[in-house]
Design a protein around this nucleic acid. Structure first.
Lengths: 333, 333
DNA sequence: TCCTGCCGAGAAAGCGATTTCTCGCAACTG
DNA sequence: CAGTTGCGAGAAATCGCTTTCTCGGCAGGA
């Protein structure tokens, strides 16, 4: 079994020194072809596998990165996780997940702890306030921040241009004659929520005819479901369209509206965000903003790999969401 | 920074030996309270954090387990992952995910590679044929297999009693006067699919009045969506109910049927499996079989921990799914 | 022909913990 | 009072690699 075979055994069997075995295995320097052959044979015969623990100790590297997310149940994060994971795997890296379950105060501890086990970490949509986050990020060092703008930190960031996306969505709705729009806000500490709201504010400022009301909500299915009452109140008050924090919220809302017999998009247009796989299969199919999750994940890995390799990088990369107009939004009737 | 502080530094600062520092940190043996105080102070002052790499080398343990899944996009696996992850975290363990993306032939390599980095692995719904799986499992050793029955392997298994669940579902439909039922099968290599089919066969055998047709399908949203034609053909042929491989498939099917103007449950009853969060929010809310994902995950961890601790365990644990009758199934009209 | 330089391979020194071994000292027994 | 016995703490070995150091041999230049 590979378990107990050490490099010493291989060396002995091949009749060479451990150093040579190591050289062969790592392709360092030039080694006598004969020795190479001997070593390879010995390795094969013994079924030798280098101990990763020993290797990490001496190299100070793990070949593992951590991804810290606020909620693994969110399809957006799942998509990014998968993207990072696939890209990293191609370079022999694995990823370890840590779910903070939206507990802001666990974020630091969790991230720090994860960092101990890994060569780098990707912080997904951290909920921490700016100053604490900046401090944290400094201690995490090889780190990339996803979906959270953080000024004044020498850290690569990759995110989604929610502000612009939401403006696009508003434009879409305005094009459909909607003027009174309700917005279902996400978690208060979510930076991407703030970005969305910023976009909303910009849109409102640009078009005085608009009347947008922001309602507190959340990020999950049941949040959307529970928001139905508030939405109905807005509708009674003249709102004809709703922009939900994300697709999950939108789908939850859709379900609740259906129960109440509200027709979407006849009585009310509803739009989401993220274009999760289910969005296209909703009732009705959901108008939403599509974000390239997998590609984003790949980009994150590419940055991360650079940092691990010692590069320094503090660029910010913003993906532009693309409007996916489907049946849940329609011209005001 | 914790990065460069070693136990030697702490020892020096505290004026004691490394051994004592180690003892204090691990709470082994009894140490002079005075020394304990010194060490703690030195640790705090230096901001010392033990190197996990060094620790793993000497202990031969990682405090990390791997979870290998065929598709992270599946909410069932996400739920189990979360369950395992939370339970493991409570014991200071982290989990590393490896997604084989339904590539059967990568399963062995992926699992083996993951095992190298971890103290144990949980194999989720492996698609490997029995003999290869048995061989693999032997090499993985501390391992628990989820959602796959594997006879003749000394390995704990935890799963879901799909056969019984599906019989329950059939009973439910029969109670609603359905006799001709279409079944959308999952991935061919999926063991849980085989279990479901076994349940179907049993139900059919028990009730000669039943006429159940199995259609090939898949495990994802679009599989269900794409199955609509086949389902319609069955319906034209007299089928009045459909049992989908899982909720994702059911939801995809629902979407396609809606496009076609088929009324569910009026024209056709549809049931799923797993009770994913979205099931209750479908149109109509989906009748499904609920499985306790988080609890299952916790059980998996509990088994795993035992194994890591050296216990031997080859019990099989089967969770009984619970019928969640909702609006997508109704009496045949 | 002799010296310098280079190259390849083995010996040995870490990497940073844990754990066994050893030893001194105090307490306990007969 | 002498001879264990026990206990606490430091020294050193160990885990399994990588990498530097060292040295012998061989080729090229003077």
């Amino acid at each position: 079994m590979s378990a107990n075979v050490t490099i010493a055994d291989v060396a002995e069997r091949a009749g060479v020194s451990q150093a040579s075995v190591s050289r062969v295995l790592n392709g360092k320097a030039s080694v006598d072809p004969e020795i190479v052959k001997q070593v390879r044979r010995a390795v094969a015969e013994l079924g030798y596998t280098p101990s990763l623990a020993a290797r990490s100790l001496v190299r100070g590297r793990n070949q593992t990165v951590a991804m810290v997310v606020p909620d693994l149940g969110n399809p957006l994060f799942q998509g990014i996780l998968k993207g990072v994971s696939v890209a990293a795997a191609a370079d022999g890296y694995r990823v370890l997940v840590a779910d903070t379950d939206e507990h802001v105060d666990d974020e630091e501890a969790t991230a720090l702890e994860a960092r101990q086990r890994c060569d780098a970490v990707v912080l997904c949509a951290p909920r921490l306030p700016d100053d604490r986050l900046r401090a944290l990020v400094a201690r995490l060092e090889p780190v990339v921040v996803v979906n959270r703008r953080l000024d004044g930190a020498a850290v690569p960031q990759v995110g989604i241009d929610y502000a612009r996306g939401v403006r696009e969505l508003v434009d879409h709705l305005v094009g459909l004659e909607h003027r009174r729009i309700a917005v279902l806000a996400g978690p208060a500490q979510s930076a991407s929520n703030a970005e969305r709201l910023r976009g909303i504010a910009e849109a409102e400022a640009a078009d005085p005819g608009l009347d947008i009301r922001v309602l507190p909500c959340g990020s999950r299915l049941d949040d959307g479901f529970a928001a139905a009452d508030a939405v109905e109140a807005e509708r009674a008050d003249g709102a004809t369209a709703v922009i939900a924090y994300n697709d999950l919220v939108a789908l939850g809302l859709l379900a609740a509206l259906r129960q109440r017999g509200v027709d979407v998009p006849g009585d009310l247009s509803v739009a989401g965000f993220d274009d999760i796989p289910l969005a296209a299969f909703g009732t009705p199919p959901l108008t939403t903003l599509s974000v390239p999750r997998a590609e984003l994940g790949a980009q994150v890995w590419s940055r991360l790999r650079g940092l691990i390799g010692g590069a320094s990088d503090e660029h910010e990369l913003l993906f532009q969401p693309r409007l996916e107009a489907r049946a849940s939004t329609a011209a005001r009737s």
